[in-house]
Simulated scan of single mutants.
Amino acid sequence: MLFYGNTNGLAAHGEQNNDNANIKIIAGIGSFEDKIGNEISQAIPQELFNLLEQHNEFFYSVHVKDSYLACHQSHGAPKNVLFFQGIGKRSALQQKLLDIYSRNVLVAFENICLKVEGEESQREIVYMLGEAVESRSNETGFHLKRVAQLSGILARKLKLPDTHVDLIIQASPLHDLGKIGIPDHILHKPGKLMLKNGK
């Protein structure tokens, strides 16, 4: 058995600037449960933290006594770290399996982070497009937020699945996107539009 007894462990995620001082603990078990949110430098032995500074490889791992440190970093991405303490003696096969497991976990975590980052970027782009349209309109402030909230309320009343409700809320800032191509003299014309206005 690879892990047994009183195993302590943590997972940590770095900031985009590759500064090792900004690698924060995002999960912990055992003695690391109360360290979540702290910097990794405050939790692991200094000699192992120094190794994070020295290595810039895609994946590396270090087995020291009863401790294990694994780090994964794709080009330009933040570092992701796993650290286990109290895992006992390991055979060469167990160490190899631990490396494979750690590499897969760290790559999966990086993919999740990239997916979340991409979704956040999409939301920001949609919202900025909506604001660009709103800036040309005579609507009062917070129009986009009100439309998003009302869209969500209506979608929930229709008992749509949560994923659909989220998509409707995210897409709602684009409801006036067609206004971008309309000249201001038509967009702000008081009264009814005549056929001649469309030419």
Rank of each mutant, 00 (worst) to 15 (best):
L106Q: 07
L106R: 05
L106I: 09
V107K: 09
V107E: 14
V107G: 01
V107L: 11
A108L: 07
A108E: 09
A108R: 05
A108G: 04
F109N: 07
F109G: 08
F109Y: 11
F109C: 03
E110I: 03
E110A: 10
I112S: 14
C113I: 15
C113T: 09
C113R: 14
K115F: 10
K115Q: 07
V116C: 13
V116R: 15
E117F: 01
G118L: 04
E119D: 09
E119Y: 07
E119A: 08
E120T: 03
S121F: 06
S121V: 03
Q122K: 10
Q122L: 13
R123D: 12
R123P: 00
R123M: 10
E124H: 09
E124W: 03
I125D: 04
I125M: 08
I125L: 12
I125S: 08
Y127R: 13
M128L: 11
M128C: 02
L129D: 05
G130E: 10
E131D: 04
E131Q: 14
E131I: 05
A132I: 04
A132W: 04
V133A: 15
V133F: 03
E134K: 11
S135Y: 08
S135E: 15
S135A: 14
R136K: 14
S137P: 03
E139D: 03
E139F: 06
E139I: 03
T140V: 07
T140D: 04
T140A: 08
G141H: 09
G141D: 15
G141S: 12
G141A: 15
F142Q: 13
L144I: 13
R146K: 08
R146D: 11
R146L: 06
V147E: 04
V147I: 13
A148W: 01
A148K: 14
Q149V: 09
Q149L: 06
G152K: 11
I153M: 12
L154P: 07
L154N: 08
L154Y: 12
A155C: 06
A155W: 10
A155D: 09
K157C: 14
K157A: 15
K157W: 12
K157T: 09
L158W: 07
L158I: 02
L158S: 12
L158N: 03
K159N: 15
K159H: 14
K159L: 12
L160E: 09
L160Y: 14
P161Q: 05
P161T: 08
D162N: 14
T163W: 01
H164T: 08
V165N: 05
D166M: 03
D166G: 00
L167F: 00
L167S: 04
I168M: 03
I169R: 11
I169P: 00
I169H: 01
Q170S: 05
A171N: 02
A171Y: 02
A171E: 09
A171Q: 06
A171G: 03
S172F: 02
S172T: 09
P173H: 00
L174I: 02
L174A: 04
H175P: 01
D176V: 06
L177E: 05
L177P: 05
G178L: 02
G178R: 04
G178T: 02
G178P: 02
K179H: 15
K179V: 03
K179T: 08
I180L: 15
P183Q: 06
P183F: 11
D184Y: 07
D184V: 13
D184F: 09
H185W: 13
H185T: 05
H185E: 12
H185Q: 12
I186D: 06
I186C: 05
I186M: 08
I186G: 04
L187K: 13
L187D: 07
